[in-house]
């Protein structure tokens, strides 16, 4: 009882201190400063992305160009998560046979209703198109590679859930995944070779608000979109195909 009281008092004190201090952060106030004398990085980004990079969506400019190296890191985090998941959930060959039988019977036990199946079939292409739209227009409208990729993965999830026999084409997935990753790094290396700075954008940027504008930024977001879509689909595929372990 005393122990609980002490813990409670400790947490209350800690919470009070945190609340008082953190409430002094003026969230929502405009603290960006002027464009001429940028105090924070925000002011600089807001000025540079429409004028220099010709990218209407400043967030995209920050994510893909100013902090593109972080995005490359996050893409590899996702890649490593999929790799790690696959490495932990791989099946040894001797376990395969018996489990295939069990898997098939498991599959036959639970067919989803024809309503779900028909609905999924109609929605699937639309979801894919929406996902592609989101990452192609990443530099113009809200959204981008990560969001578009996640939308595409939900399309695959719908199919995987509705049709027990639905399988993604692993060969195509592996190729797409690797090539998209290499494409992103390749764009970075292009900047390094041509301009001496990794991921540097080209000088040719087009007009603000055009579909083809912003130099290499849309290209990178397309690669990110494909990479995220394949990666998340792989993760879903691995997780949905976990077999019960042999006794």
């Amino acid at each position: 009882m005393l122990k609980k009281l002490i813990v409670f008092l400790l947490i209350a004190t800690l919470g009070y201190t945190l609340a008082v201090t953190l409430s002094s952060i003026p969230i929502g106030k405009n603290r960006i400063g002027s464009i001429e004398n940028p105090e924070t990085v925000a002011a600089y980004y807001l000025d540079k992305s429409p004028n220099d990079l010709k990218v209407a969506n400043t967030i995209t400019a920050v994510v893909v160009n100013f902090r593109g190296f972080d995005t490359l890191g996050e893409v590899s985090v996702l890649f490593l998560a999929a790799t790690g998941l696959a490495s932990i959930l791989y099946r040894k060959e001797e376990e395969e046979e018996e489990e295939n039988i069990r898997h098939i019977s498991h599959r036959l036990n639970l067919p989803s209703s024809s309503l779900v199946q028909t609905g999924a079939k109609i929605l699937f292409p639309l979801i894919i198109v929406l996902g592609i739209y989101v990452f192609i227009h990443g530099h113009l409208t809200p959204g981008g590679g990560f969001q578009g990729g996640a939308i595409i993965a939900t399309g695959f999830l719908l199919m995987l859930v509705s049709y027990k026999g639905f399988e993604t084409n692993h060969k195509v997935m592996v190729w797409l995944e690797s090539l998209a990753g290499l494409g992103f790094v390749g764009v970075g290396v292009f900047g390094l070779v041509k301009y001496g700075s990794f991921l540097q954008n080209t000088g040719w940027t087009g007009n603000l608000n055009d579909l083809i504008s912003g130099g290499l930024i849309p290209l990178i977001y397309i690669f990110v979109g494909i990479k995220v879509a394949t990666e998340l689909t792989n993760i879903l595929d691995i997780l949905l195909n976990i077999k019960p372990r042999k006794k």
Binding site: R67, F69, D70, G73, S76, L80, G84, L85, I88
Partner: peptide, 28 residues
């Protein structure tokens, strides 16, 4: 500092997976 966070994530994700790599009960 944020880039450091990203790299800590990369190291972390790899390390978690490798710890459980042998799929034994203790490893998991």
């Amino acid at each position: 500092i944020f880039n450091m966070f990203v790299f800590i994530e990369i190291v972390g994700i790899s390390a978690f997976s490798l710890t459980a790599f042998y799929r034994s009960r203790d490893g998991a």
